[in-house]
Computed example of a mutant assay.
Amino acid sequence: MNSLKLPFAFDANTIKKELAQFSKTEYRDVYNPSVALETLWLKEFIYPIGTPDEIPTFYPNDALKKCPYMLSIFETFKCRVETFRIHTLDAGAAIQKHTDSGYSFEQGKVRLHIPVYTNDKVEILLNDEPVVMQEGECWYCNFNIHHEVKNNSDQPRAHIILDCMVNDWLTGVFAEGGYEN
């Protein structure tokens, strides 16, 4: 299974209100060879704590502490979350076809998306097949295969992105969503 809508529903309007407190200057440009410079922006909401000899634990940063609803989303995931950030793709921008090696359920690490700002002119293609995501939903996609994003609209597209380590809890969530390994 290449994509799966997980059994969560988050309030995108509440997330939007919390994100409104941050200006674009608080985001940073994402350097990625699949994206034109200054078209994809990110803001991190967690940071690692640990020594070089141990696996770090990730904690909410000051920005996430200002966002109680988003903090509750972070705390919903009863697994190791290594990334909790917002990605904003500018209007008219695209993320070219590429793979994110190692991001599949079978490999033990998944990348989840929660659309915050999207519309019907945003295309997410996974192996050239569209995956239609609505605001507030939570989606798993096997990003270990070819995928791309085209924002054909005149509005930015923003998603919360979580990188999660598969554990028993997350395996149960996937089973509840209908995942067949």
Rank of each mutant, 00 (worst) to 15 (best):
L40H: 07
K43P: 04
K43M: 12
I46P: 08
P48V: 09
P48Q: 15
I49D: 01
G50V: 01
P52D: 13
D53M: 13
I55W: 15
P56D: 14
P56Q: 15
P60S: 06
N61T: 01
D62H: 02
D62L: 12
D62W: 04
L64I: 02
K65M: 15
C67N: 08
P68R: 13
I73M: 14
I73E: 01
I73R: 09
T76S: 13
T83H: 15
T83Q: 15
R85H: 04
R85T: 02
I86Y: 08
H87K: 11
H87F: 14
T88G: 09
G92K: 13
Q96I: 02
Q96E: 03
K97L: 00
H98Y: 10
H98V: 02
T99E: 14
T99H: 04
D100P: 04
D100M: 05
S101P: 00
G102F: 12
Y103L: 11
S104N: 07
E106W: 00
E106V: 00
G108L: 08
L112H: 05
L112V: 04
I114T: 08
I114M: 15
P115H: 11
P115M: 05
V116G: 10
Y117T: 02
T118Y: 06
T118N: 15
D120S: 08
K121N: 09
K121Y: 13
V122Q: 07
V122W: 11
I124E: 07
I124V: 11
L126R: 07
L126W: 06
E129I: 01
P130S: 12
P130Y: 10
P130A: 06
V132F: 14
V132H: 14
Q134A: 12
E137W: 14
W139Q: 02
Y140W: 06
Y140F: 09
C141W: 05
I145M: 06
I145H: 03
H146K: 04
H146Q: 04
E148A: 11
E148R: 12
V149K: 04
K150Y: 08
